[in-house]
């Protein structure tokens, strides 16, 4: 198992190159693979990585020959988000996860959504665990573009869930994503999580509006949500 497999598409490469000159090749996308362990082990496995990359049609395979070269390659990757400023005035970065095998299909679909919205999407992400970080590029000064960018980033999240993934891999659910919890989880799932929340925070003092699409009152009887008779009668609705 490699220690890291990271992917950057051509937009991310261009931006990172402009920012830190990592000497990436000009290409449609690149994969960074890092192995760790005893030197003899790493050497043996790197041969295997090269074979796999070649058999998958890699145009060029470079192995960092020095610590400086390795550091430069990683500096480019780590600078990629900030480097977006070189190619776009504003961007939204998303955090979604998909099963690793869904990568080709989801990348194609993101490209289609991007074309449809008329906005560029740069991709730089943790390919090894399927954690995507699509960067939706836009210009806030152009009226309506921010809204379109936001909608596009949400469509990408829905795409992740549809592919069997998650709406967040490492940054969590706050205000923005709480509505998507219902896309990913059914009501009994959310209700069970709410019960755990009530055990820890019965007064609902800690970030009361976050994570859940619909806050629950902890004084309610534990168990599945019981609709109010007015709701059942269709007279009132719970928002």
């Amino acid at each position: 198992m490699p220690a890291a497999i990271e992917m950057m598409d051509s937009l991310a490469i261009q931006a990172a190159e402009a920012a830190v000159h990592a000497h990436y090749p000009e290409c449609g996308g690149l994969l960074l693979v890092e192995l760790d362990g005893p030197a003899a082990e790493v050497q043996a496995l790197m041969t295997r990585v090269r074979e796999i990359c070649a058999s998958c049609g890699a145009w060029e395979i470079r192995v960092a020959q020095s610590e400086e070269e390795r550091a430069a390659v990683w500096k480019g990757r780590k600078a990629a988000f900030a480097a977006m400023g070189r190619i776009s005035p504003n961007y939204i970065v998303q955090d979604g996860v998909i099963p690793r095998t869904a990568l080709p299909q989801v990348m194609t679909e993101i490209e289609r959504l991007s074309a449809q919205a008329g906005l560029r999407v740069a991709n730089v992400f943790h390919a090894g665990d399927g954690n995507l970080h699509p960067l939706v590029l836009y210009d806030r000064r152009v009226e309506g573009q921010e809204g379109r960018a936001e909608r596009l980033s949400f469509s990408i999240l829905e795409l992740c869930v549809k592919a069997g993934g998650s709406i967040t891999g490492e940054h969590g659910v706050g205000e923005e994503k709480k509505a998507f919890m219902s896309v990913m989880f059914a009501e009994p799932d959310l209700d069970t999580m709410q019960r755990v929340r009530c055990a820890f925070d019965p007064e609902r003092l800690s970030n009361p509006t976050k994570v859940f699409p619909r806050p629950r009152l902890c004084a309610e009887r534990p168990g599945p949500y019981q609709p109010h008779p007015l709701e059942t009668a269709g007279v009132a609705q719970f928002f």
Partner: peptide, 23 residues
């Protein structure tokens, strides 16, 4: 499966996931 008959899922099928509480 909870005593009241609720069947609840948490987590998912992807190796990295922080959506909701980690049941």
């Amino acid at each position: 499966a909870l005593p009241d008959g609720t069947l609840a899922k948490s987590g998912g099928k992807v190796v990295k996931n922080v959506a909701g509480y980690d049941l």
